[in-house]
Amino acid sequence: MSRVSHEAFLAVLDRICPMHAVLAPTGHIVQAGPTLAKVIMPRAVTGTRFLDLFELVRPARVHDMTGLLALDGARLRLRLRAGPRHAFKGVLAPLDMAGERGALVNLSFGISVIEAVRDFGLTGADFAATDLATEMLYMLEAKSAAMEESRKLNLRLEGARIAAQEQAFTDTLTGLKNRRALDHILDRMVQGGEDFALMHLDLDYFKRVNDTHGHAAGDHVLQVVARRMLSLIRPSDVIARVGGDEFILLFVGSNARDWLADVAHRLIRRLEEPVEHDGRICRISASIGATLRSLYDHADIARMLADSDQALYAAKEAGRGCYVIHPPGPETRTTLRDVG
C-alpha cells in the first residue's frame, strides 16, 4: 500500500478529528483542526505554543514538550487560558517528525459540550459524524423543541383553565359576576376582616319592558343597566347579577352611611334615564336595600344578605325608586327618600 501524503493525512484528521492539534517538537502548533481553530479565535492557533493556549489541569505541573510527551495515551484534562473556561478532555500520541518527536493531541468537550456550543457558536457540522457530541446536540435540540411545545401546551391549557374559570364566575348576558363568584368574594372578604358595604338592587318596572317590548328589549336593558352601574363604581368594587333583574353590589372598604346613601341616590338617578331599543323607549327605575359590615359584631354574610333584602322590600313598599339602609330605625326619613 502506498504511503499517504502529508496533505491527505491532514485532510483526514480535519474530518475525523476536527479538534486536533499537531505539535512540533518545540511544542508549537503546526496544524489545527477547523473546530479547534473556531474555538481559539480570534487568537492565532498555528505557530502558538500549545501550553500557552491550554492549561493542563490534570495531570498538573506540565510545562514543556517533554512533559507532554511523557503523557502518551493518558487521559488529559485541560482548559483554555483565555476566554470561556470550559473543560476539555484530551489524549496525546507521539509523532515522528523528521527524526524528532512531535505529538498529535485530540480534544473534545465531554459533558460541557452544551455550554461550548452556546459560547462558541458551534453546530453539528463542527463535530465528527461519529462523535457522541452530535447525539447530545440532537438530544438537546429535541429536548428544546419538546420543552417549547410543552410550554405552548401549558400556556394553552392555562388560558383554557382561566377562560373556563372566568366563564364559571361570569353572567353571560351582562358580563358581570354571578352568584357563584359573589360567594367566593364574600368569603374572601370575611376571612380578610375587611370593611365593606353590601347593596341589594332590584329593577322596577322591568317586567313591563319584557311584556311590552319583548325579551330582546329586556336583555338590552339589562346590558345597559350593567354598563351604567359599572360607570358609577370604583375598580375595587364588585357587581353581581344574582337573578333576572336583581343585583348585589359590594363596596370594598366602605363603612359610612352617608357615602353609601350618595351612591344609592346616584345609581337610581342613572338607571331612571330612558333606554332606547329599536326606536322604542324603555323606562325602568331601581329600588335599593343596603347594609354595612361595620354594623355587625362579626361578619355574618347570611344575616347581611337577609337584612339588605329586607331593606330592599321596604324601599319597594315605600313606592319604588328609592333606597333604605339597614337598620331603618329613627333615621328612616333621611335614608328612605323618594328619588323617582
Rank of each mutant, 00 (worst) to 15 (best):
77 R>C: 11
79 R>I: 04
80 L>I: 11
81 R>K: 03
82 A>I: 11
82 A>T: 14
83 G>F: 09
83 G>W: 05
83 G>N: 05
85 R>E: 00
86 H>W: 07
86 H>T: 02
86 H>G: 08
87 A>T: 11
87 A>S: 14
88 F>Y: 09
89 K>G: 15
90 G>W: 03
91 V>L: 02
91 V>F: 11
92 L>A: 03
93 A>R: 15
94 P>F: 08
94 P>K: 03
95 L>E: 02
95 L>T: 06
95 L>N: 02
96 D>K: 09
96 D>E: 06
98 A>C: 05
101 R>A: 15
103 A>L: 01
104 L>I: 00
104 L>M: 00
105 V>Y: 01
106 N>R: 15
106 N>P: 00
106 N>A: 12
108 S>W: 03
108 S>I: 06
111 I>M: 08
112 S>F: 08
112 S>V: 09
112 S>A: 15
113 V>Q: 04
114 I>K: 08
114 I>L: 06
114 I>Y: 00
114 I>H: 09
115 E>G: 09
115 E>K: 07
115 E>I: 04
116 A>E: 07
117 V>H: 00
118 R>C: 07
118 R>F: 01
118 R>W: 07
120 F>V: 01
120 F>D: 00
121 G>R: 08
121 G>Y: 12
123 T>N: 08
124 G>H: 04
125 A>K: 02
125 A>S: 10
127 F>M: 05
127 F>D: 10
127 F>A: 10
128 A>H: 06
128 A>G: 14
129 A>R: 03
129 A>H: 05
131 D>Q: 03
131 D>F: 08
135 E>D: 12
135 E>P: 00
136 M>G: 00
136 M>P: 06
138 Y>L: 15
138 Y>I: 14
139 M>Q: 14
140 L>I: 01
141 E>Q: 14
143 K>A: 13
